[in-house]
Design a protein around this nucleic acid. Structure first.
Lengths: 227, 227
DNA sequence: TGCGGCCTTGACGGTGTCTTGACGCCCGTG
DNA sequence: CACGGGCGTCAAGACACCGTCAAGGCCGCA
């Protein structure tokens, strides 16, 4: 299911969007100001962000920059401002699309689908949804994992961490990036979270958790998943 | 350099686009009908396609479908048709963006940059960060090194030093610059750090560490990486 | 209200990395 | 020929980092 974050300070617009999106089976979160938007983006990891530029507490462009600081989630700007300069500024700050109010709902939905399509293209290519090692198998799409044929239960945080690693097979993933991907941009230094959850993953998936063969530690740098 | 395919049957629009794009250092191809557009897309592998929907020989949506049959190159539609239905149809056929004529050139360029940015995110350069000598190979992105096929583990400091050298192949890198890059601006005079870690690098990567062939000392000045 | 998952947080010991000093070699210079 | 600067090598101590364990808090559920 696709999760969408709607950011707008006008309740009636939010309501209209939420109703339309939920009717099309999207999962929707809503925020009414920039601070909340940034927090929800970090907490909920939406697949697409619909962002109004006229927010009460901060400039919309700063919200874009804040989100772009740690993720490339598609951002579609909704704005009453028609000027070309505003559009250029928002797009160059990192927005993916710019729709002027008032807008036709079906056009917005089509642009949403386009953004969603690009994102899923992007995700599928680097790693097939299913992968296999000699000790365990992981199906990212179905959220199922098993070791030597027997199913293994993973908690949400364990899944996030596993995905962040498995998405880059053979590549080193830095501690900062793992913390950002799994816990959000404000947890840059809490490396003990990583240690605790790495231990959990290894206990659940590795044959010999004390001598990990697939989740390798690179001291001082990060972790690496070896297929 | 980014290559762009412009598809439009109105010569003056094509001319205006080509001039504007070339002035911004894009490489531009032009096509005046759908058949040519499809052929050129296949031959020239553009990085972005700018597509007018009103073509003489075929429906613009079919051109989108034809391109989408084998590539996900970003497609930005330019069209005089403002109706919401047309937009939805084009976007759902696989277009990435839809701009109505007449359009502001700077807005189009901003949307172009957005498309280009997404594309380069997607590529993530698996190639550029990899280099090879007769003795060892280094993959900077994956943080992996190997000598004659067997993996070699490097510590964070060793990686930093290796990167600082390898980023300037064949060029001399001064001691001051190395110390600043690896240990920070306050370590300008601790040249023995360099000696210790150069020795480590050579021991781990050179075939004959006592007679280094790729990490060359320039007495009194600095070090040089020879590919 | 009590229970069970899950996440957070702190503490501890062991291992590997970094820092630092000492020594010997080579080479250019006086 | 003696000397000194620059470099490579080695080893030992200090230190950071990692894996591990366990306790506490929060939330959903019975």
């Amino acid at each position: 299911m696709t999760r969408i974050l709607v950011v707008d300070d006008e309740p009636q617009i939010v309501r209209a969007l939420v109703i339309n999106l939920r009717a099309r089976r999207y999962e929707v979160d809503a925020a009414y100001d920039g601070t909340t938007a940034l927090r929800m983006a970090a907490d909920r990891h939406p697949d697409v962000v619909l962002l109004d530029l006229g927010l009460p507490d901060m400039d919309g462009v700063d919200v874009i920059a804040g989100i772009r600081g740690w993720t490339r989630v598609p951002i579609i700007v909704l704005s009453a401002r028609h000027s070309s300069d505003e559009k250029v500024e928002a797009l160059d700050a990192g927005a993916d699309d710019y729709v002027t109010k008032p807008f036709a709902m079906d056009e917005l939905l089509a642009r949403l689908r386009a953004a969603e399509r690009r994102r899923s293209d992007q995700e599928q290519e680097p790693s097939a949804a299913r992968l296999e090692t000699d000790a365990f198998t992981v199906d990212l799409a179905a959220k199922k994992a098993s070791r030597h044929g027997v199913d293994v239960r993973l908690t949400p945080t364990e899944w996030h961490l596993l995905e962040a690693l498995v998405r880059n097979p053979g590549r080193l993933v830095s501690q900062k990036q793992l913390l950002r991907d799994v816990w959000g941009p404000t947890y840059r230094t809490e490396t003990n979270y990583l240690r605790v959850y790495m231990a959990q993953l290894r206990r659940k998936l590795e044959d010999d958790p004390t001598r990990p063969r697939h989740f390798v530690t690179e001291p001082g740098m990060g972790y690496r998943f070896e297929p």
